[in-house]
Structure formats: C-alpha cells, structure tokens
C-alpha cells in the first residue's frame, strides 16, 4: 500500500481534531472592539439636563485612569452589575456613564433604584458613540488611561469576582 493512500485518512483526523478542539468554544460569541490601544474617539454627548454630559475631552486629562460604562435602563444585566460599579467607584476609580438609546426620565429612575456611581453621564440617543468605541452592546465597560488611550474592554456585566481584576488593570495604567 502506498503511503499516499493514507492521505485522506490523515486529512480526516486533522479535521476531526480541529472540530473537536473548537466545539466547546462557540465561535465569535462576542465581537471585541478594535479600539483597545487606540485613543478615545472624538465624541460629545449631552447630559441629563441637570448634570453635565460627557465628551472625549473629559477623558485623559492627565489624571488617573477612568472607566467608561455603556449602560441602559432597559438592560437587565446592567442592574446586575450596579453593585460592582459602586464597588469600583468606592475604590476610587472615576466612572463615567454613556446611556444607550435611553431617555433622561428612565435613566433617573434607573439610577434612583440601582444606585448612581457615575461622575458624568452622556446620552447616546442614536448609538453613534457606541459605534465610535467599537462597542457591540450593553453593558460594556472601557478602561481609559490618563493619556486618553483605551486600555481595556469588558463585555457583558462585571461580575463580583471580576472587580479585583479590573482594579488591578486600572492600577497598571495609572
């Protein structure tokens, strides 16, 4: 038997191994932002009326790193992550919020109910700031360092056990 006859069998084995190795890991479950490592995109969002909005010029003014949290009052996981955001704010990291496709009244009600860890809140009514950040949903949190460069993207809600890791990252980019 010539060894070439075994080529199909080898190809099958390779395919089988490849597919098996990828089975547990669903493909492209989350689309990561390509903005990590790049400066914050230019944006300027209005505020809630009684408090200032958020613009790219508010980020990276030389002080320590800040978190930018995309949230919405209609988003369930955002409620789940509220205590963790509070913990991060209490640890001394400034957090700014960007509310996605939301109304000031709903946001106020949300903050009254679930707590308000935010320094500034920008209203992203039509989702353009989210696109500028390369964000694909809420909740999502970006770490921006003192020079205004995006250092980290956290997709989905921040779970209690992830708070320490985010604190560590924030200290790293001080």
């Amino acid at each position: 038997m010539s060894p070439a006859r075994l080529l199909p069998l080898l190809a099958l084995a390779a395919l089988g191994l490849f597919l098996a190795a990828n089975l547990g890991r669903p493909q492209q479950a989350t689309i990561r932002s390509a903005m990590v490592g790049k400066p914050v995109p230019a944006f300027a969002l209005p505020g809630l009326g009684d408090r200032p909005g958020l613009a790219s010029t508010d980020l990276g003014g030389g002080e320590g790193p800040v978190l930018v949290n995309f949230f919405a009052s209609w988003c369930l996981p955002c409620r789940v992550e509220a205590p963790q955001l509070k913990a991060l704010a209490d640890a001394g990291i400034p957090i700014h919020g960007i509310a996605l496709r939301d109304s000031p009244e709903d946001i106020r009600a949300f903050l009254a109910r679930h707590g308000d860890p935010f320094r500034r809140i920008g209203l992203d009514r039509d989702g353009q700031a989210a696109i500028a950040f390369g964000s694909s949903g809420v909740p999502e949190t970006f770490l921006v360092d003192g020079r205004g460069v995006i250092r980290l993207q956290h997709q989905g809600e921040i779970r209690p056990e992830q708070v320490a890791e985010i604190l560590r990252e924030a200290r790293r980019w001080r």
């Binding site: 038997m1 006859r5 075994l6 199909p8 069998l9 099958l12 089988g16």
Partner: peptide
C-alpha cells in the same frame, strides 16, 4: 462522522 468515515477511508486505503 469521524468514526464511520475513518472506517470507510481505511477500507479504501487497504
């Protein structure tokens, strides 16, 4: 998939 096809390919090779 792999088991059945491997069996057939083995018979084919032999």
């Amino acid at each position: 998939l792999v088991g059945l096809t491997a069996w057939a390919l083995l018979v084919w090779a032999l």
